[in-house]
Amino acid sequence: MKACYEKYFRDNLPHIFCPGCGNGIVMGAWARAMDEMGLENNDCVAISGIGCSSRITTYIDLYTLHTAHGRALPFAIGVKMCKPDMHVFVFSGDGDCAAIGGNHFIHACRRNIDMTLIVINNSIYGMTGGQYSPLTPTGHFATTAPYGNIDPAFDICKIAEASGATFVARGDIYNIRQMIDLIKEGHNHKGFSVIEVVSSCPISYGRRNKINGAPALLRYIKDHSVPVANAAKMSAEEMKGKWPVGVLYKTEAKEYVEAYQELVARLQGGS
């Protein structure tokens, strides 16, 4: 069967992404996942915050809501509660999700509401020209860390797990087939699914960190991405500066919309 992911895009390309940006790769992987799952445009909502990755909602042909910086998840919760049958995808970046949207992020995880959050982590604020984010590794350079970043970085997958998300995975823009599968598995999981995608910003991140050019940055990402099974056998020292990719955590727990519907049923049945 021929793949038909064009139907998930609007005709308003070209996009704003710089040459070598990973956002297009993630957007393409998402569309392929949509196609493989056979989801209809009219059954899906995509919601995003502010930043390069959040511009994805401009290009994909669903009901799309491009919100304010860091705020996509509260909007998404409002939509999902009112339209439980719709598939909700949230696109966010490392700054959008882990900094200004950090509080909304942990509370969305806690509620375990059924939606799929894709966090495109390029380790930098790209839209504003290369400032460090909470996911910029310590020691790396940014326009606001001209002498090297002294802030420790978050591991948002660990935050997600600790906060109550019931599906947590990490992919990267080199292993596209894996990313497609992670998006599908996350979507098919009932509950709050977090998929971090390690991505590239050659212009604002690579350039300042002596990883010059998109191919070099892609190779860097490939070399630092370790399948979870392999990572489990490696020492902390061996894993230093690297990150495990694959499904990191998966569990079953009461989904929020369902819990709310049970509450309503209990009240309406009992009166």
């Binding site: 919100t67 909007f75 409002g78």
Partner: peptide, 12 residues
Amino acid sequence: ASMGAIIGASCT
């Protein structure tokens, strides 16, 4: 978040 949720709800 409260504002975000009501705006999202209103979209539906």
